Computed example of a mutant assay.
Amino acid sequence: MATCNAHYYATRDPLGECGDFTTAPEISQMFGEMVGAALADVWMRAGKPERAVYAELGPGRGTLAADALRVLGAVGFEGTTHLVENSPTLRAAQSVNLPDAKHHDRLEELPPRPLLLAANEFFDALPTRQFGLDGERQIKWDGEGFFFTTEEVQREESPSRLQAMRRLAGHLKRRGGCAFVIDYGYWEGSGDTLQALRAHEKVHPLTEPGECDLTTHVDFGALAEAAREEGAAVTSMISQGSWLETLGIGARASALAAANPERTESIAHDRRRLCDEAEMGTLFKVMAVHSPDWPAPAGFPE
């Protein structure tokens, strides 16, 4: 999974209608604006620390960052922008949207400063191990193609995700800041969630390795435990739709429609895609990890 995704992301821009999937920031500016508003709020309540920087893990084309930074800038945030990205293709796109951003290969390269961080659909692409009754599921080659050693999967685990979260949580504990993790996933317990996407359609994960987007659902409960072990504070997990509505996406949609009456229906349609249960609203979840010295971010149940 690690090898396939490394090749996949290094050789293409997978986003949009001509790609393999569409992420929330590419659907509407409202998504990035809500992330920016939530980060702006917690930054202001933390006392507007001047050393804080904006950071993003797996930032796509830089669309989310551009929208979030526009909101952050409106409240006086002037921190630098740091993007953790390995794909040369996506780095080029990010440099167009964010010409002053600094790129990093690894999370641990982020500057030793308070972070205002977003990780949207980052953890799902990290490699995952799967286990059935007879032990770990493996992939073998029979001379003609790849095949799974078993079709039964009872549980999944991702050491790479836990390692990334520990590094992030440790940074927040030592340096301050707040991070939003947004992804499809669950709190605990799952079977087989491995999936592959190509041209917006699901295909078999072993079809054309390296040419499809491979993901598994994120175990938010495991991430929360890893973050707490490093001394960070963690909110509850909430659905993306509930989070966005609580933050005020309805009011933002109304304001956009008033300023662009010819786009009223498309704005309403985009809001439904982001928030409705039948769309992304329930499938995607949100959790915040923050310094224990910073206030809890808005939008989460107490």
Rank of each mutant, 00 (worst) to 15 (best):
H7K: 07
Y9F: 15
T11W: 03
P14K: 03
L15T: 02
E17C: 04
T22N: 01
P25M: 01
F31C: 02
E33Q: 11
G36A: 00
A38V: 00
L39Q: 02
G47W: 00
K48S: 14
K48F: 01
R51T: 02
A52G: 03
L57W: 03
G58F: 04
G62C: 02
E78Y: 07
T80V: 10
T81S: 14
V84S: 12
E85W: 10
E85Y: 15
S87K: 08
L90C: 12
D105S: 15
L107K: 06
P111Q: 12
A119M: 13
A119Y: 11
F122E: 15
F131S: 14
G135S: 07
F147H: 12
F148I: 04
T149Q: 01
T149K: 05
E157C: 14
P159T: 04
R161T: 03
Q163D: 12
R174P: 08
R174C: 06
R175V: 06
G177Q: 15
G185N: 14
S190G: 10
A196N: 09
A196K: 03
K202D: 01
C212E: 07
C212R: 13
L214S: 07
L214M: 03
D219Q: 05
E229Y: 06
G231H: 04
A232H: 09
A233T: 13
S236W: 05
Q240L: 07
Q240E: 05
G241L: 07
L247V: 09
A253D: 05
S254V: 12
A255D: 15
A258L: 06
H269M: 13
L274G: 10
E279K: 02
T282N: 03
F284I: 07
V289H: 06
V289I: 15
H290F: 14
P292C: 05
P297T: 00
G299R: 09
F300K: 06
P301L: 01
E302I: 00
